[in-house]
Every structure is written in structure tokens, then in C-alpha cells.
Computed example of a mutant assay.
Amino acid sequence: MDFIKEIPAIKWKDGNFQKVKEHTVGDENIYFFIDNLMPRKFSTYPTHLDDFAVGYCLGEGLIKTADDIESIDIEDNRVIIKTKFNHIPEEDFETDSILQERKGDGQHVCACRLLEYQGVMSDSAGGWRSELKNIQVNDSDLTIDASQIIKDMERLTDKAEVWQATGSVHVAQLVYKGEYITREDVSRHVAVDKVIGAAAKKGYDLSQCYVGYSGRMPADMLIKVVRVGIPILISNAAPAGSGYEIADKANITMVGFVRGNRFNLYTAPERVNLNQ
């Protein structure tokens, strides 16, 4: 596998120890240059960077569809992204209702405000995520069987090849009409960005997709799925209070602690067939 490193370690067990070789991932700093905006730095497992670029721009509200990206050029640790909107730092992005009113006037507006460095928050993995200014309620009619949630989490573990080799990454998968996209990264956010980007490139209807991943569910993760319109988020870990509040307001079905043959269902329970 790409970017797997071997490192020395001392393994201790029951009072005995020995020198061993362990595997880890070679994470790197990646810089996004999106139109004329300030560069953005991420610590990432540097694979599927084109998927990451698309998913990140969607999750930040910088584009509406994958077709809004004109080009993605990858030069070593630099990812240069050109969109048809030619964003500049001074732009003031507005709401969808205003977008409808101003269609055709030649001026780009968007569903969120532009990332401003005084108005962003860290995703805890070396990147920046903008805050959500408006919460749009998700009215997707997608449903999933309870038993499928368990099967999908088992599949997530089985397909986590880099995690199995190193334990150093998170894994995410997106499911759409029985088709799966799986990606791994040192950042749970980037892993999810990658599956969203890959799905958008394939033209999947994100309102009929759901995402499962490893890691907690705080506000900055829920913001991403709210923006792109994904109705169900599943994790083997816990929700944060901030994540719960956004999921509840946006009618996102949030499922946590999927372990063995159990899970907790926190919000929008109507999308889960509990008897199936």
C-alpha cells in the first residue's frame, strides 16, 4: 500500500518487552489553493486528493455540484483548484433564497458565507472548516434497515486496509443504492470529504446516500453533511453535544456506538426500520 512506513518500537506485555518493527502511515501536509482564496493546510494521508478537493469544496459551500470545478491540478503537496466562481476573500456569500432572487445578474452568491479566518474553526486534523450560518432541514425520504447498519459497519472494518495494517487512519464509506465508496485518511473529516467527493464525481444523488465512518460526531462533521444534503450519518463512536444539536435541527438521522450487534439512534429515527 502507498505511504506505509516501518518504524521501530518497544512492545511491552505482562512485564516483558522486545524491540519490534511496527507500521504506520506517512501522513503529509497538503495545501489547497482554491481560486484566489488564502491557502488551506491539511494533515492528510495523501491519496485520492481529487476526491478530497471536490468533497471539501462541497462541504464548505464553495460549490454546489462537482461540475462547478473547472480544474484540479496536483503538484507535489499543492492542490490547485479552479472553480467557475473565481472566489476572492472579500466575497460575501448569501442564502439560497437570495440566490433565487438574483439569478442572472452575473454576480455569484452561495448558500453560506465565505470562509473568513476570523470565522472558521479547526477540524482537529490540521484543516479549517467554516461555521454554518443557516441550517436547512433535510427532508430526504431515504430509509435503512437496522440490520443493514450492523452489516455496513462490519464491511467498513473489513475494507479498512490501511487501518488494519497500521491503526493510524480513519475510514469512511458512502452507500448509494447498494454501491459503496470507501476511503481512508488520518483525518476523519478528510476521509468523509473523499467519499463525498467521489460520489459527487459519479453523479450520485446525495439525498439518497448515507455515510458511515470511524470517529466522533461533533458539529463540524454534521455541518458537512447538512451542507451537501446527506440525510444519515453513522459512526462506531459517540456524538458530541454540538453535533447532536445540529443533527436535531437539520433532521439528520444520527446513529452512534455501532458496535457488535447494537447501536444508539439519536435523531430523525423515522429513517431507520427498527424491526428489520
Rank of each mutant, 00 (worst) to 15 (best):
D141L: 09
P39M: 15
T65L: 10
G104F: 07
W128D: 05
K202P: 00
E154L: 04
A247P: 01
K249E: 15
I7K: 12
Q148R: 09
I196V: 14
I149R: 01
I88L: 09
G197C: 06
D193F: 04
Y180G: 00
R262M: 11
V192H: 00
Y117D: 14
G15E: 15
P89S: 12
F17P: 08
Y210W: 14
F33W: 12
N138C: 11
H48G: 01
A165K: 02
R227K: 12
S187K: 00
P89H: 12
Y56S: 05
M221A: 07
A172R: 02
E154Y: 02
N261W: 07
Y117N: 14
L115S: 07
F52E: 00
R113W: 04
N134M: 06
S214A: 08
V272E: 01
T95N: 05
A9W: 07
Q136P: 06
R183L: 01
F32E: 04
A200N: 01
V120E: 09
S124N: 10
D205P: 08
H48S: 01
G178K: 01
I63H: 03
A250Q: 04
F33I: 07
Y244H: 00
Q173L: 15
M221T: 08
E28T: 06
G178A: 04
D185I: 00
R113K: 13
N36E: 13
I30G: 00
